[in-house]
Structures are given as structure tokens and as C-alpha cells.
Simulated scan of single mutants.
Amino acid sequence: MFEEIKESIYNGNVPRTQELIKEYTLRRVPTKKIIEEAIIPSIEEVGKKFQTEDFFITDVLLSARAANAALRAIEKQDRMDGKPITKGRTRVVIGTVYGDIHNIGKTMLSLLLEANNYEVIDLGVDVTGEKFVKSIAKYKPNFVMLSALLMTTMKEMRCVIDLIREQNSGDFSQTKIMVGGGPVTAEFAKEIGADGYADDAYGALEWVKENIESNK
């Protein structure tokens, strides 16, 4: 039923994806059905291609942007119909730590999370520990994701985690922290007290899904 939408997302064709979403919503196809049976399966298929090295990072970014455009088109149509799309309860704060301005991996993960209908608060790059703490207090996320691509900025992850752990409120104790990026390893993540680690964006996405399931 949704092969055209899947193909347009798979190929990273944003205009065609938006056009198809408009067609389906005007035909009163339930938006939840479009998300669950077209958008998410498309991104999952792209993920498989990426993990088998049939897709490159640029391919994933294009597909994720198309999936994100599909969600925005659905949200727009639902608002026009007087029924805003309901955000999932899972909320993620993400950012590249202070001193590091690398953006591609973080952007890719943000797009993938949004394409899977998670609510993402992207703090950008060069983010201080204090800004992470303020964001947790403000948004009360389920997950915080820290990115670093330089050996010299990895140590900032420890500082951020220590600062978060120093807070005593329930908002902070319930939030799980994941780290990732080029030089980061599982051993380093464990050493600095992170709850999780992934070596790429799809691994991070799977970690979020697994932790949501374990908390049900």
C-alpha cells in the first residue's frame, strides 16, 4: 500500500515524499498507519543497507531528511484538520560536547530519531555541561546523548556526566546517558559512568529502542 512512499524515502526524494504524504492524508489514510507502515520501515531498511555498507553516510542523511519531511508534512496536515500529531513520550536531548564543533554524526542521529517519531532537542555543537544540565531540567528527557569526535574533547564527556550526576532531583536520576563518536569506545563509556555507547547512529537508535522496551 505504501510502496511509493517507501521508495521516495529510500531514495531521499524530499519533494516526492511530501507530495505523496499530502495525497495519502487527503485520502484520509490514518497518519499513524503511514508512520508505522511506511516511514519507520523505510528508515529500518536504510539502516540495514548502511550496516552492510551498501549505503554511505550521505545516503542515510538524504533518506533521514526525506523521512523527517514526511513527518513534518503529516504534522502540518493534522494541524490543518484540527488534530495535531501527538508526540511520543520518548524525548531525547543531544549535543556535541564543549570544544568540539563536529556535526555530521550528531545530525544523522537527530534525523534518525525524529524519523522514528521521537522528540529530539538538538543543542548543536560546542555545548557546555551547564547547558546540558539546564536542558535536562527544562525538557525532562528520557535520554541524553553526548557526541565527540576528537581525542582532546572526549574528556569533556566525563565532566558533563559528573555534572549531571551531581544533580539530585528525580529528573536527572531517571535520565539515561549515552556517549558516542569516532574515538569513543565501550570501555571509555563505562569508565566515565555512561549508561550506554554506540559506534554509529543506527547503533544509538537501537540502544534507545532497547531501553524503551526494557522500561515498559
Rank of each mutant, 00 (worst) to 15 (best):
V160T: 11
P84R: 15
F56S: 14
A73P: 07
E156C: 10
V92L: 11
T90W: 01
A201H: 05
Y202I: 13
E3M: 09
V120N: 08
F2T: 03
L149A: 15
S169M: 01
E75I: 07
A189Q: 05
T175Q: 01
L146V: 06
A73R: 13
T52G: 09
A67M: 05
D200Q: 09
V160C: 08
K32E: 13
D200R: 10
I101Q: 13
D122H: 06
F132R: 02
A66S: 12
N68P: 00
R89K: 14
N215Q: 12
V160Q: 08
P41A: 09
N116H: 08
K48L: 10
S63E: 11
G47D: 14
R16S: 08
Y197M: 10
I177G: 02
T90A: 14
D200L: 09
I161H: 07
D171T: 08
A137E: 09
N13C: 14
G88Q: 13
I101A: 14
I101P: 13
T52C: 13
G203V: 03
P141T: 01
L163F: 01
E206I: 04
I164D: 04
K83F: 09
M1G: 07
V46W: 03
G129E: 07
L61R: 06
W207A: 06
E7I: 10
D200Y: 00
N13I: 12
V208A: 11
S110D: 10
T25C: 12
V120R: 06
K87H: 14
N142D: 14
A186L: 04
V144D: 01
V46P: 12
G124L: 12
E23A: 11
I85L: 15
S173G: 00
T25A: 09
K216G: 03
L205W: 01
V60Q: 05
A186I: 01
V179E: 09
S42R: 03
G182W: 07
A115L: 04
G181W: 02
W207S: 04
E206F: 01
R165D: 04
W207P: 00
Q51R: 15
T17Y: 10
P84W: 14
E166L: 04
E130L: 05
K6N: 06
E53F: 03
S173I: 00
A198T: 02
G124K: 07
K48W: 00
M1D: 10
T17C: 08
P84D: 15
A70N: 05
E166V: 01
I164H: 02
Y10W: 10
V184N: 12
G203Y: 02
S42I: 01
V144F: 00
L71G: 12
G12S: 13
L150K: 11
I164C: 03
G95Y: 11
E213D: 06
P15L: 12
V179P: 12
V144A: 03
I104E: 09
T128D: 12
S110Q: 11
K176D: 02
I177L: 03
R28N: 13
G129L: 05
K155P: 03
G182H: 07
K106P: 15
